[in-house]
């Protein structure tokens, strides 16, 4: 976390980090409280089923907020993430017991030497299926 990556040494395709994030129901409740997003699809099984979901699902923003940690830790400074975007392509169902595993792999997508920024592309899957689309973080180095 101390040494910051050097822009000149980065090439498109370089993997900057991988991580597995385990989400359980407590993690969803914790995020609901911390964020203020109390939508019952993230904690109430009956409500989630009634609106046609496979069960309780993780907040898209919890997935988005968790996976960017790979980028922030690599950058050595969470404030260096100057932009961050994604599409939510598939829900992450979280079982009542045990966890749902979210796999993250982050790689350099583009280097802008003039701006001093790197675009890091995140591949995020659950059960082998992509759950985020076009997840990209631009980092100032």
């Amino acid at each position: 976390m101390s040494a910051r990556p050097a822009l000149a040494e980065l090439a498109v395709g370089d993997v900057v980090g991988t991580r597995t994030i385990e989400l359980d129901r407590a993690a969803l409740v914790r995020y609901a409280g911390a964020s203020g997003d109390l939508n019952p699809i993230h904690w109430d099984e009956r409500f989630a089923a009634a609106v046609g979901l496979p069960g309780v699902i993780a907040h898209g923003m919890l997935t988005m907020g968790s996976v960017v940690g790979v980028v922030a830790d690599w950058a050595g400074d969470p404030g260096a993430v100057v932009s961050y975007q994604t599409r939510f392509t598939k829900p992450v169902p979280v079982p009542p017991e045990g966890t749902a595993a979210v796999e993250v792999s982050a790689a350099v997508g583009a280097v802008d030497a003039e701006a001093g920024t790197v675009r890091v592309d995140l591949t995020v899957t659950h059960d082998g299926v992509k759950v985020l689309g076009r997840a990209q973080a631009v980092v100032r180095l």
């Binding site: 914790r30 911390a34 969470p78």
Partner: peptide
């Protein structure tokens, strides 16, 4: 701090 814990952000600057 609470939000950082909720998203697993362990960087000490949080």
């Amino acid at each position: 701090r609470e939000f950082a814990v909720a998203v697993g952000a362990t960087h000490p600057a949080h």
